[in-house]
Nucleic acid binder design. Structure first.
Lengths: 345, 345
DNA sequence: TTGTAGGCGTTATCAG
DNA sequence: CTGATAACGCCTACAA
């Protein structure tokens, strides 16, 4: 266990001053004679010297690190988002500190504090609760925040990157209506989340557009965590007048919902048509392959990182930006035209 | 955008010296009178002061950050591992810098350099290539490394946390043999990875134990990335004498392999029994539900973090530690007794 | 083109 | 119990 070389070691070893070494380190900072540079570079190589990030960050005001605050990496949607964000960030030379909230506002608050301590350059987050003041404090400290996928109200200066949740839900519902379905169940996220609300809004709009009225009993707002998807499906299936189609607009609950459907004796799509939010590696592996709304995760990641890094470098106009990317409706085999209800044998 | 308060601001505001503030910050460092402490705490609260991590790290030699170097977050196995690691780390008050290698040794090498710069306390990694010298350098700098899931040779002082890959594969194969299968295909990871090798080793052992000889044509080493799983299945299915069962020991390729099987007209488990490595949220949602080897991700995470943090705090015996946790064989419906081959109608 | 010196915010070591 | 003050490693004026 050797103690790492410092800039001073390099300077001494190369027979120059620390200033010169510093200049070749971050070149463009000042002039360095070609041969001097060569000598320094060689020495750096030989000593295996690497500038110490902490020292650098202390002296500069900012960092080359961004914070990524996600709800839950076990959810494939967030996992793939993280994957792309890390990738895009690396391409821009920035590191990612990863924090998860498990949808818990308290943990989220803690995470925000952590990010302040680390004085990250900026933050990409899926807000979980209403830590409005906490987020505001970040902004106030000059740490730029980008909300991705979800958003919360009461914050002016925060960029947002998301799909058009209302439109996506509307498209899904219209598809089902076009197939003749009249009673459609909708399982959404919590009513106090933007996605939970917006998707229901779009759903309602589709119904209205078709001259239908929404049956409130068919609309379920359920938590992201836990196993409520199963219960919601159960309630829907056991309703006096059960729906002929269900849209699961709560990505985290798709699995739970699907399991419940499999356990029952309803057949998809013969007895029940199904559209779920978010495509992922297994939606086309199940039987039948699922009709889905596919979020363009790459785009979400690219824009988030662009904004986060761009803001940090101060090369974006002050005005808050809102980026809405198109989600894609992918029809597979879990949706079919409404038929006279023929109970399973 | 206010500039954040420093320890000096707090000291001045509270009418004490910075030393006192520092002591209440990390208490146990020295004595502080109760009322003085109260005053300081109040001031800290009022000013919203948070100690700056960079300054702290500069002065102390170490960090409360660990590096997590994973191959690919899009793989649910790694995603869930990351989720648990972040969780366990937080429970111990440490942060996680996440880096992905995409299985690329070059990116891995870069990642290691990054971790040196950040002077992380320790690193948890799934080694991708043979960056032996790079890893050795980390060790040499006093940064402890824990390999999880995989390992590479030539490194003495690195802790390893993994399942018993050979035994797990052996169990899977024995299960199939017990069902009467004689020709069993095995799709593994690259031959230059520990998992890729060990699983095949166990597979061979099972065959030998049953007095069978392995047909080398039925053993495929394929990359983790890309779509080779599909090709491997194709080759197996189209062999002159195709296997009656396949074990997919390459977690990342399960999906690809499964897709290919679905496209073909072989029925699972009637025509082909199937065991795959690693359980995940969708293995029981597909038809038929898959028989799997389930890795105890929680355990992998707990032990990795324990080792990483424990080492960093220097409270572990010097000797390298090797933790092997039990994987679980979960029988579902994708395996069945061998029958006379009855081609699909 | 190169070198010197001050400071970034904390912690730690001593005296008071 | 409390208060100066010297590091920690790097960057950046400012001098030479």
């Amino acid at each position: 266990m050797r103690k790492p070389a410092t800039i001073r070691d390099v300077a001494r070893e190369a027979g120059v001053s620390v200033a010169v070494v510093s200049r070749v380190l971050n070149d463009g900072t000042g002039p360095v004679a070609p041969q001097t540079r060569a000598k320094v570079v060689e020495t750096i190589e030989r000593l295996g010297y690497r500038p110490r990030a902490a020292a650098r960050e202390l002296q500069q005001r900012t960092t080359s690190t961004i914070g990524l605050v996600l709800a839950d990496l076990a959810n494939p949607f967030f996992a793939r988002l993280a994957d792309r964000v890390v990738w895009e960030a690396r391409a821009r030379g920035v590191h990612v500190v990863l924090l998860t909230t498990q949808e818990d506002p308290h943990l989220e608050a803690e995470s925000i504090d952590t990010l302040v301590e680390r004085s990250v350059a900026s933050v990409i987050a899926t807000p979980a609760g209403d830590n409005v003041e906490k987020w505001a404090r970040l902004i106030d400290l000059g740490i730029d925040v980008v909300f991705v996928d979800r958003e919360i109200e009461g914050l002016e200066e925060i960029d947002v990157v998301t799909i058009r949740n209302d439109v996506s839900a509307e498209v899904a519902a219209s598809h089902l209506i076009g197939l003749g379905h009249r009673r459609i169940g909708f399982i959404s996220g919590p009513a106090d989340t933007s996605t939970g609300r917006d998707r229901v809004t779009g759903f309602r709009r589709a119904l209205q557009g078709a001259g239908l009225t929404a049956d409130e009993d068919l609309i379920h707002h359920i938590p992201f965590r836990g196993d409520a998807g199963s219960d919601a499906v159960g309630a829907l299936l056991n309703a006096a007048e059960p729906p002929s189609a269900i849209i699961v607009g709560n990505t985290a609950q798709v699995r739970s919902a699907l399991r419940r459907i499999k356990q029952s004796d309803v057949r998809v799509p013969e007895d029940l048509s199904l559209v779920v939010f978010d495509d992922n590696p297994w939606t086309e592996l199940v039987s039948p392959p699922l009709t889905v709304i596919r979020q363009p995760i790459d785009m979400l990641a690219v824009h988030s990182v662009d904004l986060a890094v761009g803001r940090a470098k101060g090369l974006l106009p002050a005005q808050r930006r809102r980026v809405e990317v198109e989600a894609e409706f992918v029809r597979r085999s879990s949706t079919a035209p409404l038929t006279q209800h023929a109970p399973a044998p």
